[in-house]
Each structure stands twice: as structure tokens, then as C-alpha cells.
Amino acid sequence: MTATAKPVPTPARRDDTGNFVSRLISIVSSQEIILLFVLIALLASVGSANPRYVAERNFINIFNGNAYIAVAAIGMTMVIISRNIDISVGSLIGVLGTISGTLAINGSPIWVSWLVPILVGALVGAAIGFMVAYLRIPSIVVTLGLLSILKGGLITVTSGEWITDLPEGFFLAQMKTPAFSILGLSIPAIPSPIIIMFVLTLIAVLWMRYSQTGRAIYAVGGNAEAARLSGISEKRILMTVFILNGVFVGIAAVLWATQLSIIQSTVPPGLELQIITAAVVGGVSILGGVGTAFGAMIAAILLSAINSALVFIDISPYWFRAVVGILILVTVLADMLRRRRTAAASGD
């Protein structure tokens, strides 16, 4: 409880002995495992009460529904690990999604309308990073200000007109892999957001674990002073983190914009809270230095599963938010107790 952000166990510790599998397991530290169990338990219990909950269609929908949140949560994970926060992501997703749709209906090639939001996201990220790293404005202040600017600016520019008549082929998030069967096992069509979510998360987890820069993020978040002494440029790392966050937000925005035939060119309400919730429930310590993108992804899926389950098990929808709040508390409490026990066991 004295909590001088001492990461226990240090995720940045590299064990060279184990084989790839055991390493993979150690990447996935306990919070992720707990979440995975909770997710499986939820799927199993609600599924046994109502088999349609885990039927193929709903199962895929649970994974698909929050995929864009999971992608944005990868960036948020890095930001929070570096002891910062970004509360402008929801507004940014609205803005970038609108940019994407506007380009598409004005005749840009499809790939341009997918790529530009990601680049703009990176630019905005760079601007945030610059203000945080070089001008030393706390990230919560920068992004609180930016949230207002983006939200107000978007309405000023679009006056709330929806974007319709999007060209065929724009809808990245509606694309699916072909269904096929192999060895008598029929593999259903997987929507692209699920694949994008898994691939990006895997890349992020490996990069944060094994690349020098990736590990430096943990170092900066865990103990900036020590990181500085060991020759890591905190400023450069923060810039990298915010630019990457912008890229992930950009990808999330494209998924968000291409999911439906209409783009509602406003800021999705409360989206930033969902993304931050996914990251912290996924085990990213707000004290910095701890957490993985994998946990954030599981958490995003879990939130989606809960949302779906609440409809399935006939809990009055009036109670949905209370349940989400309890869920966050319970996972975090479990994590705190586990960490304290680990700390006690290692005689800390």
C-alpha cells in the first residue's frame, strides 16, 4: 500500500531461459489470466442459461462489437504505462472517422480515405506528445483541452450532417474472411475487425516486450529518473508513445467509420471512458510501468460480453452501468490483493 510504483512482477524483466511458449505465458501476466477466466466463466454460465448467447453469430458479435475499442486501447495502454493519459481519444475517433468518410464520398481512392485518418491521428499524437514531453504540460490538461477543441470544432465544421452514400468497398469493418471447412471443422467467416484486433495486439505485445523502445516505455513509466540515468531519452519515448497512440486511434477510427453504412459525424458519447476502462481493467496500472495490450484486449471483449449478457439474462437495463462499475472495482480489487500477496510472498 506504500505503493511507490514498484512493478511486481516486473513485466520488462526478460527471462532468456524459457522457450517461446513459456515466455509467451509469462508475457501474459496474471491479471490477463484472471480476466480470461472471468470471460470464459461468463460465456459458459450465460451460455448454459441461453445457448444462443454462445451461438456462432453472437459469439462473433461479442468479439467484433468492441474491436475498435480494443485497438484504441492498445495505444491507451502505452500512454498509461508511460504514466500519462489521453482523454481526447473519443473526440479524436469522431474527427478521424468523419475525415475518412468525407474523403471517401468526395471521390478519393478508398485506400487514401483509410490511410489519411491514421496519418492525421499520428500528427495529432505528435502534437500531444510535443506538448507533454517538451512543453511539460500534464497530459490530462493537454487532452482535456483537446477534447473540447475537437468536439466543438467537429460540430462547427460539419454542423452535424451525417455522411451517407459511402462508396462500395469503403466498409473495411464489414469485410469478412471466407468461411471454409478444414478436416470436417467448419471455420465461420471472421469479420476483419477481429483479425485486425488480434494482429495489432500481438504485434504490440511483442514489440513492447522485446524491442528496446517498447521496454523503455515501461522504464519511463516505472521510474523516469532511473530511466533517464540509464540513458533513455524520456522525451523521445513520450513522443513515440503519443504518435503510436495516434496511429492506433486512427485505425480504430477507420474501423468505427466503416462498421455501418452511415457515419454519424459527431463525437461518440463516453467513448474515451470505455477505452480507458478497457485499459485499466486489462491490468494497466495507472501508477505506470505495468500492463499489457493483451489484457486491454481481453477487457474490451469482456465489456462487450457483459453488455451482451445483460440483454441475454434479462437484467433490467437500468442497472447496466452499475454492473460495469462493480466489474471494474472487482477486477481492480482482485489485482490489488494478488499484487499485495505477491509482494508479501517475495518478502517485500
Binding site: M1, A3, I276, T277, I286, V324, L329, V332, M336
Partner: peptide, 17 residues
């Protein structure tokens, strides 16, 4: 020992709920 940001993020949802 739950950080204030997480605690109150959770109770933000809980109390509104």
C-alpha cells in the same frame, strides 16, 4: 490502495448506475 483515478472511474459508472 486502488489508485484514485481507477476507483473513481469505477464509482463514476457505479453511482450513475
Amino acid at each position: 490502495g486502488v489508485p484514485p483515478l481507477i476507483t473513481t472511474l469505477a464509482t463514476l459508472a457505479l453511482y450513475r448506475g
